[in-house]
């Protein structure tokens, strides 16, 4: 993502933000409330259209007009607000917008059996246990709801998974599982953007960190080179700017979101 800017009315949410993501990499996006994290994610997932700037995938410039467009390019998102339909049940929520259908006499009929089965598998992967798949999600705990939102993203078989505060309302045990899970996604070669206020979680799971402040990137670096104090200073503005990445990554020639060559260079 290159030079992304977005304003809501007079409020500038993002100002010339460059953001890069490689396969098999977990990038942590941190910053204070209102720093622009969620906005950036929503631009990447097609919810918002940026005022300025471009998005490239594998060198190709793309334009997202809706979440469905982003999904077609393999970008799935777990939104901070989860985007669940409260009165609908677990299966319906996981598959909403991407239902499994079978063709009966030219009609697209919901394949409820297959969805139920797949929902079971997805939940199992995340080690989320539910009494029944038929309860409306409003009846579930915060952690369970988050689990379902993650299942929805996973179901999409995406290359990039954005997670906005995936551990926010989870109990300790639950968030451990999510962190494990993020690591597993990396092993599968997927790219993950991980947003969290919990720096503890961030440091345990991400490879690289990007710090946003007032809509600008104020810091970037690999976790090995950073410590929590530095990050906190960047977030709060005590430290103005910090770039611990090599020039070839920061000023990448293509500005690609996903770039196989780049990822080889960066991986250690």
């Amino acid at each position: 993502m290159k030079k992304i800017s977005k304003a809501f009315g007079g409020v500038i949410a993002l100002r010339d933000v460059d953001f890069r993501l490689f396969e098999g990499e977990v990038v942590g996006l941190v910053g204070d409330n209102g720093a622009g994290k969620s906005t950036l994610i929503k631009i990447l997932s097609g919810v918002y259209i940026p005022d300025k700037g471009d998005i490239y995938i594998g060198g190709e410039r793309v334009e997202f007009r809706s979440p469905l467009d982003a999904w077609k390019y393999g970008i799935a998102t777990v939104y901070q607000e989860l985007a669940l339909a409260d009165k609908m049940n677990v299966v319906e929520n996981i598959f909403l917008g991407h239902e499994l259908v079978k063709n009966v006499l030219g009609l697209r009929i919901l394949d409820k059996r297959r969805m139920r089965q797949r929902a079971g598998e997805l939940l199992k992967q995340l080690l989320i246990e539910l009494k029944s798949l038929d309860v409306p999600v409003s009846k579930l705990s915060g952690g369970q709801r988050q689990g379902i939102a993650i299942c929805r993203a996973l179901n999409l078989e995406a290359r990039v998974i954005c997670m906005d505060e995936p551990t926010a309302s989870m109990a300790v045990g639950e968030s451990e599982r999510i962190l494990d899970f993020v690591r597993r996604l990396r092993e599968q070669g997927k790219a993950v953007i991980f947003i969290s206020h919990n720096l503890e979680h961030v440091f345990r799971v991400v490879d690289r960190l990007v710090v946003l402040r007032h809509g600008r990137v104020v810091g970037e670096g690999y976790v090995e080179d950073l410590d929590k104090d530095t990050v906190v200073k960047l977030i709060t503005g005590v430290l103005e700017n910090l770039n611990l990445l090599g020039e070839e990554v920061r000023e990448g020639t293509t500005g690609d979101l996903l770039d196989r060559n780049g990822s080889k260079k960066v991986r250690r």
Partner: peptide, 9 residues
């Protein structure tokens, strides 16, 4: 809004 985020047209 949620439905749109989930990919519903």
């Amino acid at each position: 809004y949620s439905a749109r985020l989930a990919g519903v047209r």
